[in-house]
Simulated assay, not measured.
Amino acid sequence: MVRQLRVTDSPFPLRDDDEKDGDQVDKAAEDFINRFYSQLKRQDID
């Protein structure tokens, strides 16, 4: 028999301030992607 997983079984805390951290991650990811594409374009020119 398999027990159904409940949301309360999650090891991650439910907090409203997680959204702030998510914004920082989104910004860092966007910066990384922009740098990556910029470097890729420079490679195409060379």
Rank of each mutant, 00 (worst) to 15 (best):
Y37V: 11
K41E: 10
L5H: 08
P13W: 01
G22H: 04
K41N: 10
D18F: 15
D23E: 07
V7L: 14
R35P: 01
F36Q: 06
F36P: 01
Q43N: 01
D44N: 01
K20T: 12
D26P: 00
S10T: 14
D16V: 15
I33E: 06
L14E: 09
R35K: 14
Q43V: 09
L14D: 12
D9G: 03
G22K: 09
M1R: 10
K20I: 13
N34T: 14
E19P: 02
F12R: 10
D9P: 01
E30W: 02
D23W: 01
P13F: 03
D44K: 10
T8M: 07
Q4M: 14
S10M: 09
S38N: 10
R35Y: 09
P11I: 11
V2D: 01
V25Q: 02
D23N: 08
Q39T: 05
L5S: 12
A29N: 06
K41G: 03
E30Q: 08
A28C: 04
D31N: 11
D17R: 13
V7I: 13
D18S: 14
D16H: 14
E19Y: 13
R42W: 00
L40Q: 04
D26G: 00
I33R: 09
D31A: 13
E30F: 01
D26T: 08
D16S: 15
Y37M: 12
D31H: 03
Y37Q: 13
D46T: 03
D23L: 06
K41T: 06
A29L: 14
Q4G: 07
D26C: 05
P13N: 02
R3H: 10
D31I: 09
Q4T: 12
L5Y: 08
G22I: 07
E19W: 13
E30T: 12
D18W: 15
L14Y: 09
A28P: 00
D18R: 15
G22C: 05
E30L: 10
K41L: 10
P11Y: 02
K41I: 06
V2I: 08
Y37S: 04
D31V: 07
R3G: 09
A28K: 11
R6T: 10
R15I: 11
A29E: 05
A28W: 04
Q39Y: 07
D23P: 00
V2F: 05
L14H: 10
D16T: 14
K27T: 08
I33K: 06
D21K: 14
L14G: 09
E30P: 00
D26F: 04
V2H: 03
Q4P: 08
F12V: 15
Q24P: 00
Q39V: 06
I45N: 01
V25W: 02
K20Q: 13
G22M: 09
E19I: 15
I45E: 10
R42N: 08
L40K: 10
R6I: 06
Q24Y: 02
K27I: 07
R42L: 11
S38Q: 12
S38D: 12
T8V: 13
F12N: 08
Q24M: 07
A29V: 12
D9K: 04
D46S: 03
D23G: 03
R35L: 13
D46A: 01
